[in-house]
Simulated assay, not measured.
Amino acid sequence: MPATPAWPPKSAPRLFVAETLHAGTRLTIDGPQAHYLARVMRVSPGNPVVLCDDVTGEWAARVTEAGKRSVALECIELLRERETVPDIWLCPALIKKDRFDLVLEKATELGVARIVPVVTRRCVADKLNPERARAIVTEAAEQCARTALPELAAPVKLAALLADWPVDRTLYFADENGGVPLVEAVAGADRPRTGFLIGPEGGFDDQERAAIRALPQAVPISLGPRILRAETAALAALAIWMAQAGDWRDREGPRNPGEE
């Protein structure tokens, strides 16, 4: 006999929603999400949709009504509970919009728990569109099958970030003047409370570097012999930490999309 097709299929659309979901929850999607479901994915009654609420986890839902401006759905069953997220913060200095978009997207894919944009003296930007940033983060989480969204903080000045930095959280900062190789700095760490501070295109100035180094929780690190762009440094640091101290060490976990 032929195998019973998986339900919902891997091709089912994925969306994050604001409502907390339960079996039997009925909700109506409108706006851009409705446009995506109705006009792009062309869903019809009975079609499956995968929903995440960033609270309970990932749910299989079924379309009950599909209109031009709204789509009605009913939650059927819980597929996965919300993922456990390593306690890692990324604090990247604001850089040019397209490059910062890349940081938001890829940091979400890599599994960061919190993103805190930082304003430094050499930043070429000092503002961030919160709605646009949240949309980038959400879309990235949907595309890579995350069940949790990173917290996205409002931009903060470097001095304020340092003044409020938790006493029990390590702050690794990429110092172009040199520091401990990151692989060595995190070797043997067991998923500590951690943050990464990455400077802008021009790096930190001398006063900023001195202020960071004066913080007891700060650890200057090196990301190798080559000069990295700000966005590359942020993502390289996250990847190294995830491999050495984060959840990339887990032997079991959710499969990658499309993986059998």
Score class of each variant (00 low, 15 high):
Pro8Glu: 07
Lys127Ser: 14
Arg114Gly: 02
Leu215Val: 11
Ala189Phe: 11
Val219Ala: 03
Ala113Thr: 08
Glu184Val: 05
Pro200Leu: 09
Asp206Asn: 12
Ala66Pro: 03
Ala233Ser: 12
Ala113Leu: 11
Pro2Ile: 13
Asp190Val: 13
Ala34Pro: 00
Val119Tyr: 01
Pro130Lys: 11
Cys52Tyr: 00
Phe204Thr: 04
Gly224Met: 10
Thr108Ser: 05
Gly199Tyr: 04
Phe100Met: 10
Ala3His: 10
Cys75Glu: 01
Val156Glu: 12
Glu83Val: 13
Val137Asp: 00
Thr64Val: 15
Ala230Gly: 11
Pro155Thr: 13
Gly24Leu: 04
Arg14Lys: 13
Ile76Met: 09
Glu131Trp: 05
Ala214Ser: 15
Glu105Val: 06
Glu105Asn: 05
Phe204Trp: 15
Ala210Asp: 14
Pro32Phe: 06
Gly224Ala: 08
Ile212Ala: 02
Pro9Asp: 09
Gln244Ile: 06
Ile88Glu: 01
Arg69Lys: 15
Thr28Gly: 03
Arg42Pro: 04
Thr108Gln: 02
Val40His: 02
Leu171Asp: 01
Lys97Pro: 05
Ile88Thr: 10
Arg122Pro: 01
Ala23Ser: 15
Trp7Cys: 10
Tyr36Glu: 01
Phe196Thr: 03
Arg39Thr: 14
Ala236Lys: 04
Gly57Cys: 10
Arg62Ile: 14
Leu102Tyr: 14
Glu19Gly: 01
Trp241Ile: 01
Thr120Asp: 01
Lys68Arg: 15
Ala38Asp: 07
Gln217His: 09
Ala107Cys: 10
Arg82Asp: 06
Asn256Ser: 08
Ala66Val: 07
Leu73Val: 15
Ala214Val: 13
Glu231Arg: 11
Arg255Asp: 10
Phe100Gly: 02
Asp250Thr: 06
Asn47Thr: 07
Val180Tyr: 01
Trp59Glu: 05
Ala23Phe: 08
Pro2Ser: 14
Glu201His: 05
Pro48Asn: 09
Asp30Lys: 03
